[in-house]
Simulated scan of single mutants.
Amino acid sequence: MVKLFLVSMLNNVCDLLPKFAGDLHGKRVAYIPTASNVERGHQTMVRSETKLLVNRLGMQVNVLDVATASTAAIKAGLQAADVIYISGGNTFYLLQELRRTGADQLLVNEVNAGKLYIGESAGAAIAAPDIGYLSLMDSTKKAPDLPNYHALKLVDFYVLPHYLSFPFKRKSQQIFAKYSTKLPLKTISNHGVVMVNNDIVTITEK
């Protein structure tokens, strides 16, 4: 069973998560904030997202930065978790660090074994077969060691987060115009979620 909860902003739709995945109170979540390492406000984001997971969802949080953790620590952290949550930031930097450490395949193995995956913004886009379509939204220069844009392939479609939403209204329009006839895009606003339950894919906008 594969269960994915792909969002632009988890804070806006977290009330839908228990309805999709069941009661998460007391569940252990491996929270991967790596994508925001190269963005402004990284520490503020980590604090606010940790607070969301603990206070609103009642989860036990293990912050797991794949840019600094060892491969052994990443493997142990992912295996110990009930849920994996990758938050937003630069998608290309995130992919670079996932692949550099081998966390990409470790993560895929856990999700394919049935572990709930929550992907926010970059974390949602990384589930696609490839992330090259996001180069109009995220800077590829922040991932100088990334040889190609092949991603996790957890799904066969491409999530376009923040569609027609702040702060990416114009850029998301440009991406849609360029790729909507080339790729199976699934657009979600800042209040949207793509829910994947095996072969059933549902898109909800609040």
Rank of each mutant, 00 (worst) to 15 (best):
I86G: 02
D130G: 01
K206G: 07
Y31S: 08
A122M: 09
I32H: 05
E39Y: 05
N62C: 10
T68K: 06
L98M: 11
L136S: 08
D138C: 07
G102Q: 12
F5A: 12
N12E: 14
K115T: 13
T44Y: 06
L95E: 06
V83T: 12
E120Q: 09
G77H: 03
N11V: 10
K206F: 14
A67H: 05
A67M: 01
L78N: 03
R28M: 10
P147R: 05
N198D: 15
Q174L: 14
T68Y: 09
K141Y: 08
I131H: 09
K186I: 14
E120M: 00
G88M: 03
N90P: 03
P167F: 02
K182Y: 01
E205C: 07
L154H: 09
M45L: 10
F166G: 01
T181G: 04
G88R: 00
R99Y: 08
L106T: 12
F168T: 04
F168L: 14
C14V: 15
G119E: 01
R56Y: 08
L10T: 10
S139P: 14
K27R: 15
A151S: 14
H162F: 11
T50Y: 03
N109M: 05
A80R: 12
A35M: 05
P147A: 01
D199Y: 05
T187K: 15
L185Y: 05
A103Y: 02
N190A: 08
N37I: 07
A72N: 08
L17E: 06
Y158L: 10
T50A: 07
P129R: 04
Y85E: 07
I86P: 00
K182P: 01
H42L: 03
L94E: 04
L160S: 00
I32K: 02
N11S: 13
P161C: 02
H191T: 12
I188N: 01
P18T: 12
I203D: 00
L64I: 12
S70G: 13
Y163F: 15
L94Y: 00
V155R: 02
V83A: 08
L164N: 04
C14Q: 13
Y158W: 03
